[in-house]
Every structure is written in C-alpha cells, then in structure tokens.
C-alpha cells in the first residue's frame, strides 16, 4: 500500500495524471455531497421552528439562533414514543441474546471436522436458506404457536441466520485444533470446551455477528407489523411509520398529541431519533464488520 503511494507520487507528474487525480477527487467530493445532503436536510428539518418562513433549501443553512428543539421536546415528552423506544430495546436485547444462544452452538458443532454426520447437518441448515417458501407458511406457524401479540414473535422466526452461522463456523474452523484436542484428552466436555476455550478466542466474531443481528432486529418493522397488534407493544419503526404516514390520516396517530412543533419537524426528528442508536453503534460496527464480511467471502 505504502509502496504504491510512493510510486504514484512520482508518477503523478504528467498532465494526464493530474487530470486523473483531479477527477478522482472531484468524484469523491460529489459523492460526499450526494450522501451528506439528504442526511443533513433531515437533521435541519427536525430543528425547524413552528413559524418558519422560507424555502427548505435555505432551511438547510438555518442559523442556529433560529433553531427550535420543540420537536424533540415533544417526542421525548410523549409516552407513546418512550414506550416504543422501550419495546424496541426489548426486541433488540431479547433478539440478540436468543440469536447468539442458538447460533454459537450450531456454528461450533458444524466446525468440528471429525463429527460424523457433519455433512448432512450442513445440508439440513442450508436447505431452508436456499429454498424460501415465503411469508404465509411462517405466518401460519407463528399464529399456531400462539405468539401473536408476544414480543418474542418479532425475533424468534428470524433468530438464526444461516449466513451468519456459516460465517461463525468459518471462524471457529480457524481456531487451532490442538487447543480443543488437548482439552478433550483432559476429559473436558464439549460444552466446557466451547465456553472455556472457544468463546474467549472468539470475542471479535461474536461481537460482529451480534451487531449484525442487532441491526436487523432494531430495523425490523415488518414482523412487528404482522405479529403485534397491541398498541402497547409497538416498537419504534412501527411508530415512526405511523408518524411518517400521518399527513392527513389522523387515524394512525394523534399528531396533536405531539405539541406545537411543525409536523415536518416532528417527522424529521423522529427519523433522527430512530437512527441515533445505529449512529452511536456505528463506529463499533465499522470496526468489526470488515473483518466479519471478509471472513465470509474468503472462506465458505
């Protein structure tokens, strides 16, 4: 990498190379604008005061002394919003715990090369992965199990991702066999080996996979919509969806319950608030995901 930079530094003397560098950076600046403007305009919109006059374009450069936090005060003071936040956290924690509890042992067992029947086991977990029967058969199952209006219904049907299991299996396969063998000779059980030897060595991959699951659960709105009817159980994405769709349709939410901020500001503020946990978690995700995804693409 460093070598290449030296080389190109010397090479970047001709006119064509200068044009090349200019165009590369121009494209990146263009991308920066394209990516940042929608985010920025949503954020500034959320701080818009009630009596705002002027275009949204100007609104993007709204001076701080004209900002209003009314939308945020309204949201944070709203019981429905706080309850939705709490429900989302319940789904997040319950979902990630369940997912890891199921994925880790499965991935570990699949990683033991000497295991009789390992091949059949792999086929068994891959069949549902490549053959997706669609929505209705799972819906019937969840209904039959009596999970409607149970928080569990949101995370249980998708608790194990075969893809994540295979990534984790690849990681476990990379752990030197001698470590496990010596423990086995000492008479340790597999559960003990998994907990005492494998898990401490696998913190990074468990974090990565846990984050992947967590992002999925936090963002999921469709399962919650299908399986949770009660207003008291609705997670953040459902509430957010209702707020966003409530332009004239007041049957979804009583917007008036949200105080005296303009409706666009309320909408934008709830978008931003829903994104905050992802933005906070993002540096951690970024630290781990390249490792995780690379692992998945290198070995299968």
């Amino acid at each position: 990498m460093r070598k290449k930079k030296q080389v190109s530094a010397i090479a970047a003397s001709t006119k064509g190379d200068k044009v090349f560098d200019f165009l590369v950076n121009l494209f990146l600046v263009f991308m920066l604008v394209v990516i940042a403007v929608p985010m920025w305009s949503t954020i500034t919109l959320s701080f818009r005061p009630n009596a705002y006059i002027g275009s949204n374009l100007q609104g993007m450069f709204l001076a701080p002394w004209k900002w209003s936090t009314a939308a945020y005060r309204a949201l944070l003071g709203n019981d429905g919003f706080l309850m939705a936040f709490k429900n989302s956290f319940k789904i997040l924690i319950g979902g990630v715990a369940t997912s890891l509890f199921l994925t880790i042992p499965l991935a570990y067992v699949l990683s033991i090369q000497s295991l009789p029947g390992r091949r059949y086991l792999t086929i068994l977990i891959i069949i549902p992965y490549i053959f997706n029967v669609g929505l209705i058969p799972t819906y019937l199952l969840v209904t039959k199990l009596g999970l409607i209006d149970k928080i569990m219904a949101v995370f249980l049907p998708g608790a194990v991702s075969t893809y994540n299991t295979l990534i984790m299996r690849s990681f476990f396969e990379g752990i030197p066999n001698e470590l496990k063998e010596s423990a086995r000779i000492d008479g340790a059980s597999e559960i003990r080996i998994l907990v005492m030897i494998i898990l401490p060595l696998s913190k990074a991959i468990i974090m990565t996979i846990g984050l992947f699951y967590g992002v999925g659960f936090w963002n999921d709105f469709f399962r919650a919509m299908l399986y949770l009817n009660s207003n008291k159980l609705q997670p953040l994405p459902i509430l957010l969806r209702n707020i966003l769709m409530a332009s004239g349709m007041n049957e979804f939410v009583e917007i008036s319950a949200f105080g005296d901020a303009p409706i666009e500001a309320i909408k934008a503020a709830s978008v931003f608030m829903s994104a905050i946990p992802m933005i906070v978690a993002y540096p951690f995700i970024q630290k781990y995901f390249t490792k995780g995804t690379l692992l998945g693409s290198v070995k299968g």
Partner: peptide, 9 residues
C-alpha cells in the same frame, strides 16, 4: 444500517 422506514422519512 438504516431501515427503510428511516429511509422513507
């Protein structure tokens, strides 16, 4: 990492 609900917003 953002959901399509947020994207819609």
């Amino acid at each position: 990492f953002l959901s399509w609900v947020i994207m819609y917003g």
